[in-house]
Nucleic acid binder design. Structure first.
Length: 589
RNA sequence: GGGGGCGUAGCUCAAUUGGUUAGAGUCCCAGACUGUCGAUCUGGUUGUUGCGGGUUCGAGUCCCGUCGCUCCCGCCA
């Protein structure tokens, strides 16, 4: 139907007879000559119709409207120099057409695809007519970026001798973790499959199968509430390897990220990617996913205030808590109103309040608490925080975890306000040595990563005594303050695995029922193994410079997990329900 | 489950802090125009102010409920 695409013609094809197909982007009708911008995925080409060339074609051209699909035939001509359009790749030429076929008409679109309003169209409209939204060039570009990234991942892992294996979508519900999406069984009444939250157990079983190096670009499903970076179905680059230590994972992923970033033209990533222990990340950045594009690190001050006159600080230190602060360089001039907002944020994250010092340009400190500080304390503060005129210092005094987290959030606000976060920079970091357990309600242990995670070799002995202090052989990869992925070395000893399940206080029957196959598999010569999973949608989102993964997923769902285009989920026929043995008794009408 | 924001013409937004007949740009329709590329010019059509109640002489505006979209907390091993 076409000899060329709308993106490829140039002076190289001068005087050639060509056929183009595409969508009518805009029509500029001058009464005589008519200009049409013809668009396809590859670009935009100006085609012109002159009544003197073909009255018939000119008439048809005049009847076209936006988004009509046409085929046009004509000759490639150079534009006069002053008529060239430097903003178009094809801007030096145009196609003088004497034939046109209208392949399909289009109703007026429910929203504009181009122009100043196109970027602001409400998202529910875009989602209802997603196929139209996807015609927009930013969306086309996002789909291309995603494609290039997945290709780069496949190439890299293929060259590293990985085998891509598909694992089941219809699988089994496991306790803990996210809520499962369930699929009723027709053949076994009253039984349900679950869609995988991740191919976790399958990939470990593949190691026991001797696959040695597995990967999958895997769809995962979690029935939890949505966010800008969370969809009910999402994609992971899922990786597992045998006979490895964390170092092997770091090296592999460093290389993978560098390759992928290169493939999308985002330059050279410095490898090895720097590492931070979980403890350091929390102490220095107040987050397990630190944005390391800027400084403003958290500074320890507890020792300075052990015996201070300022009661609030002294008591916190006396009770084993921490006094810490951040020097938000150059923000000394922020209005009190902002400090009030930040105080509210501080309280949301558990602080009693937010003390601060504003170092004025003349060097004088303004602060509600400074009167309590001795000269020595002030001197130590100034030195340790490197306070200069024009700086803003804010303090947190609380239990160490609370102070860290609160300052971590405030640090991000401060960095943003100071304009020190470079949107074009991509800063990766590993966070290592996560704790194995966190302590939940009633002292109950919960796996921080998942219950198959191996403990740090030195810490296994603490399992029955101080499990809360155990470190895991678990790691996250973080990009610009966003958790890109995480993984761990897995337990390969069935006895250790059983001890962990017991420590998690899972009932014996449940362990057998839900994890029996895994423990059994471990007992048949399971190799030491470990892996990682990367959140592919987030990765693409960051590279594409979007704020939501919805913009890098072709057909995403709304915050209520609805597909507005397909109108899913939806009710089904009574017969379909009978087939799967389901009766809708609990729905209140 | 909780907190915040938004909902007015096909689209993007106004509408004097309760006051006459709800406007603008754009899109769309018609006409004019042979070098535009956000074409231009002239004219025209377009409203259940998300929905349902309430207060009031009077509601886009205030109150209650509800629906939808969105951001966040909880949740997401």
């Amino acid at each position: 139907m076409r000899t060329h695409t709308c993106g490829e013609l140039s002076k190289a094809q001068l005087d050639q007879r060509v056929k183009l197909c595409g969508w009518v982007d805009t029509v500029r009708d001058h009464g005589g000559v008519i200009f049409i911008d013809l668009r396809d995925r590859y670009g935009l080409t100006q085609i012109i119709f002159d009544p003197n060339d073909s009255r018939e074609a000119w008439d048809l051209a005049q009847s076209t409207r936006g988004e009509y699909v046409i085929q046009a035939e004509g000759t490639v001509e150079a534009r006069p120099a002053e008529m060239a359009n430097p903003r178009l790749a094809t801007g030096e030429i145009e196609v003088r057409c004497d034939r046109i076929r209208i392949l399909n008409k289009s109703r007026t679109l429910p929203f504009p695809l181009e122009g100043k309003d196109a970027e602001k169209v409400s998202e529910d409209l875009r989602l209802t007519y997603r196929y139209l939204d996807l015609r927009r060039s930013p969306m086309q570009e996002n789909m291309r970026i995603r494609h290039r990234m997945s290709q780069a991942v496949r190439n890299y892992l293929d060259q590293a001798d990985f085998t891509e294996v598909e694992t089941p979508i219809l699988t089994k519900s496991t306790p803990e973790g996210a809520r499962d999406y369930l699929v009723p069984s027709r053949v076994v009444p009253g039984s349900f499959y679950a869609l995988p939250q991740a191919p976790q157990q399958y990939k470990q079983l593949l190691m026991m199968a001797g696959v040695d190096r597995y990967f999958q670009i895997a769809r995962c499903f979690r029935d939890e509430d949505l966010r800008a970076d969370r969809q009910p179905e999402f994609t992971q680059v899922d990786i597992e390897m045998s006979f490895i230590t964390p170092e092997d994972i770091y090296a592999l992923i460093d290389g993978l990220i560098a390759d992928v970033m290169k493939a999308v033209g985002k330059g050279d990533i410095q490898t090895p990617i720097p590492r931070l222990s979980y403890e350091d990340a929390m102490n220095r950045y107040g987050s397990d996913k630190p944005d390391v594009r800027f400084g403003m690190e958290l500074v320890e001050l507890s020792d300075i205030f052990e015996e201070t006159e300022f009661k609030v600080f002294r008591q916190v230190v006396g009770q084993g808590g921490a006094v810490k602060a951040v020097n938000a360089k150059g923000l000394g001039g922020v209005p009190i109103r902002v400090m009030d907002e930040w105080t509210a944020v501080a309280k949301e994250w558990g602080l009693g309040g937010l003390a601060y010092i504003r170092a004025q340009d003349d060097g004088e400190w303004k602060s509600p608490i400074i009167k309590f500080f001795s000269d020595t304390e002030k001197e130590q503060l100034k030195e340790r925080l490197a306070i200069e005129p024009g700086d803003l210092v804010f303090f947190a005094a609380d239990q160490r975890e609370v102070a860290n987290k609160a300052l971590g959030h405030l640090r991000l606000l401060a960095g943003e306000m100071a304009g020190v976060i470079d949107d074009d920079q991509f800063a990766f970091t590993w966070v290592t040595d996560f704790p194995l357990f966190e302590v939940g309600e009633g002292g109950r242990l919960i796996s921080v990563h998942h219950p198959f995670t191996a403990a740090h070799p030195e810490d296994l002995a603490l399992l029955e005594t101080e499990p809360g202090r155990m470190r895991a052989q678990a790691y996250d990869i973080v990009m610009n303050g966003v958790e890109l992925g995480g993984g761990s070395i897995r337990i390969h000893d069935p006895e250790v695995q059983s001890r962990i399940f017991e420590a998690l206080r899972l009932p014996k029957e449940e362990i057998e029922d839900r994890f029996g196959h895994l423990i059994r598999a471990l007992s048949f010569g399971a190799p030491p193994h470990g892996g990682i999973a990367l959140g592919f949608d987030r990765f693409v989102m960051m590279v594409a410079g979007e704020d939501s993964i919805r913009d890098v997923i072709a057909f995403p769902k709304t915050q209520k997990a609805m597909d507005l285009m397909m109108n899913a989920p939806a009710t089904v026929d009574a017969k379909q329900l009978r087939d799967v043995h389901i009766k809708l008794d609990l729905i209140e009408s």
